[in-house]
Design a protein around this nucleic acid. Sequence first.
RNA 1: GGGUAGAUGGCAGAGUGGUCAAUUGCACCAGACUGUAAAUCUGGCCUCUUCGGAGUUCGGGGGUUCGAAUCCCUCUCUACCCA
Length: 398
Amino acid sequence: MFRPVDEQLSLLLRGAAQVETEKDLRTKLQRSFDTNTPLRVKYGIDPTGFDVHLGHTVPLRKLRQFQELGHKAVLIIGTATALVGDPSGRDSSRAGLTPETIETNAKNYLTQIAKVVDVSQCEVRPNAECFGIWGFADMLKLLGQSTVQQILAREDFSNRVKAGTAIYLHECLYPLMQGWDSVEIKADVELGGTEQLFNLMVGRDLQKGASQAPQVCLTSPILRGLDGVKKMGKSLGNFIGVGDAAREQFGKTMSIPDEMMREWYTLLTNRSTGEIDGILAGKPNEAKKQLGADIVAWFHGADAAVQVQADWAKQFSQGGDPDDMPEVILAGQSLPVLDVMVAAGFCKSKSEARKKVEEGAFNYGPDRTKPADFKAMLDLTDGLVIRLGRKVVRVKLS
RNA sequence: GGGUAGAUGGCAGAGUGGUCAAUUGCACCAGACUGUAAAUCUGGCCUCUUCGGAGUUCGGGGGUUCGAAUCCCUCUCUACCCA
């Protein structure tokens, strides 16, 4: 039923940042193979309400890989941990989460990740099912399993000690809670980004304390965003969402720095190293289009990938308009050009729109007419194409 | 608990009574060039505007003044030192 251990290992190690420990992973895979028992692979997520982007898909793809190899994915929904907030990275406070929003977020989240993992085959476990019924004695027992020194050994915390920024006691609880989840579900492997290593390792310790075989911690590299520098993240606006339209995903991919391509190919596609080398040896522009097409095909299907490339060629190589473009619904035959621009989402304010008109950035119609000035009225016809920079929108009259 | 230093536009960081809607850098948007890459150059980057201006901004509130981001009082928050 299971593939040979070496074959599984080489697949699983591809694109992994760190494995603690590789030896344990091999042992577990071997036992799984021998006893024909799937490994239990844990991935946890706090339903704090966010849009899933490509950065999140990196560890999720690893989870998917385990699934494809016949192992059991266990998704922890952090209904309890969400109330504490992960001290990893810069998230500091997450106040104001009510049980209702947590539930909505969780559902929303599952819908989004269904594009990456087979959710129907996952064991989904809210961690409030355990922590929600805990008493003070249970909590004391958990707290007794770690020391202040151990928690402070964590880089995030030690940095904060050095920098003199506050560390609240409940934040120290987070790694223990996450670790305890591993005990509850008897995890064989836990996945996460590299920033999760500490939390994952706590799970190992707690499992040892509970006389379980310690889980393997497999971390994935942090994907850098469109700017090619910083971690992909919503707050930085340098992300591609799994729910983005095909043209958005393709266009954003085309705008990444060339040097990013190997990273993205490795972490976001199934292409082998050899294949990637071949692609990158060619023209960068072609390589990037292929990357964009791979990403679009992943979320929207192969047909969409073909279509989006054809559109791109039309718009940017031939200077025309794409076939597929967003629409703005307007009422009236003639509207001030600034109002139209704001309505189309080109500009946040009329002042900004005015400046763009003065810069000559806005044009419309087949002849790419520019308005005489920012006070001009725009005669609207159904299907009129308006443009500002790379943004192209079709007018639809209501 | 005591003391010291701070809080300025997305970030960093100038500005200490009028010429400040606030120097500069980064980020961001647009134009030229192009491969929606990089590099480079240019314009823009609080809101509204009948394009003359107008309105709201420099942690919150109050005050002094013809006039305050700039002075005073007070509150809140942050960092550092001592306990």
